[in-house]
Write a protein that binds this DNA or RNA. Structure first.
Lengths: 326, 326
DNA sequence: TTGAAAGCGTTACCAG
DNA sequence: CTGGTAACGCTTTCAA
């Protein structure tokens, strides 16, 4: 790899001058600039980010912490983040925390060790608000509310209410509400929203608790649900994965969808529109959330003034075929 | 952030000594070591990776280049890679190329600018074997065969053959085989495998070409398929996404699965088992492939001897309910 | 067993 | 307008 020194001697100038043309600051004569450009071209030089980072004490790297990229909701967030940061010239250092505190801490440590300029976290540990606070780094929370940090999230409470309202209006009488993992804040919000709404109605609503969102477990929850509440005629799933699993199980049991049981999911992951019948769901604009989180972080990094540090994106009912028409 | 200097003065020794205990090399007295440890503890010091990287001319970072993390096949690869590299103390710099040469080049540039120790690429541009060859970095290709580089991939040819054989043996007579995007090498392999097998049989097999794997487009391919070949009774989908879309469309058209038409997908993404009927498919061990690619790369980085630089993982028929029993 | 100092590739300050 | 040089935080000779 060519260094700035090589370029300097090739162009017959000092490294200081090369640095000036590189960063486009300070005075540099037209002639000189041209010589330098030629040398750069010729040597196919590109500056060493590590040296830059060392001197400036900040890199062009942003840390992204996710629970588990294998859950189809997160790649969309990640992609949104990535597109936005890379358009702004930043790159992503990625970590999956599995909601495991130690892993999370380890990643945060790597982030600072690598001089990241900021970080985005979509994990759910409130415990280390403390840790985060010592971080001394621009941080934005993604897919999670909080009073203490900049955050972009969707209105889970409203989403939950919307799901419940939809099912009730479409005539469900015995609605099973699935409660997602207790430590997953957004899941609790939507759950609370649903329960709030249902409490104001006359429908029964047994609650079924689940402790994960994984594909492997989803089947189990689905079986348990119909075993425990065989006469349920409406299900508010904790997310689309679970919703699809329930749909699958209902069909396997010979139930008619949406006649016998209506199902509504949460998230609107891409594959939801491909289930059969296509899953009705509450959409969170994941890609957009990722983009906005990144955009917000970048503003923070650039220390722009008057930024809205908490942005709430709207949720939306996507009415497909697991809920009744009209 | 505390630096090595701070630790040194806190411990009353030189930075050289601190460095020695940090890296556990060179002589350092037991007493001294203890003092240093205490200082490190007290200051909560952790070494600056950037400075290290600058001096050593190599970081603890590995570059991972993916086509599009939004395609559910890739998060699994990514996760496999991540788990393996992070267990070995490395971290991931992530890039989505969208199979776009310019983006790919940009990421590769960032990778070298950041002194990555190696990279893993799951993209499909053979054109820049040339670029890669000038890279002077350990590289392993993932989900792609090649003679020129270390690679881990699954046997696409065999997978295609297996899909075709399965459908034929289960009585399909007019099999539509879908051809994935031309530039996606693994898709072509499985396609060729299927065609090879079918050529040796008496069944008809119209070929339908598609140009993408996205969810949005998949629906379109599905509609086109049944519009063009309404009497098809077996479909070899180019991957599970397309397979699920076809399943959806077939059901929408009132076809019975698997009686009227049998469908077989490719990949075995997690959601395939949740379609209804559950999708039969050819499984590629994506997570495992990611892990092995990372393991191979790490061996390369450590310059171990006698390593198997090309590992082919087996594919497997996952017989679910879109193919007939027995 | 320990310390001083050079050097990794940049940037920015100060002279000229 | 340009060049010399200290500094960023670390590792590694080389001497002591």
């Amino acid at each position: 790899m060519a260094t700035i020194k090589d370029v300097a001697s090739e162009a017959g100038v000092s490294v200081a001058t090369v640095s000036r043309v590189l960063n486009d600051n300070g005075y540099v004569g037209a002639e000189t600039r041209k010589k330098v450009m030629t040398a750069i071209e010729k040597l196919n030089y590109s500056p060493n980010e590590v040296a830059r980072s060392l001197y400036k004490r900040e890199s062009r790297l942003i840390g992204l912490l996710l629970p588990d990229i294998t859950n189809p909701y997160f790649p969309q967030l990640a992609r949104g983040v990535e597109d936005e940061v890379s358009e702004a010239g930043f790159r992503l250092l990625l970590g999956n925390s599995d909601e495991n505190i130690q892993k999370e801490l380890d990643y945060i440590q790597t982030f600072v060790q690598n001089n990241v300029v900021g970080m985005i976290s979509a994990t759910n540990h409130v415990e280390h608000d403390q840790l985060y606070s010592e971080l001394n780094l621009p941080l934005v929370l993604l897919d999670r509310t909080t009073d203490n940090y900049p955050a972009v999230y969707a209105d889970g409470r409203k989403g939950g209410r919307l799901a419940a309202k939809t099912l009730v209006e479409k005539g469900a009488k015995r609605i099973t509400v699935m409660k997602g993992p207790a430590h997953v804040k957004p899941a609790q919000d939507r759950f609370r929203g649903a329960v709030e709404y249902l409490s104001g109605t006359d429908v029964d609503f047994p609650v079924m608790s689940t402790t994960s969102f994984s594909f492997e477990d989803a089947k189990g929850w689905a079986e348990e649900l119909f075993a425990t509440y065989p006469d349920t005629d409406g299900v508010i799933a904790s997310n689309d994965i679970v919703g699809i699993a329930i749909l699958h199980e209902a069909l396997r049991l010979g139930k008619k969808i949406p006649e016998d049981v209506q199902i509504i999911g949460y998230d609107d992951i891409p594959q939801s529109s491909l289930s059969y019948p296509a899953l009705s769901t509450i959409r969170q604009p994941a890609y957009e959330m990722g983009r906005q989180a990144a955009a917000l972080l970048i503003k923070l990094i650039k220390k722009e003034k008057d930024i809205e540090t908490t942005v709430q994106l709207p949720v939306e009912l996507i009415q497909r075929n697991t809920t009744r028409k009209g």
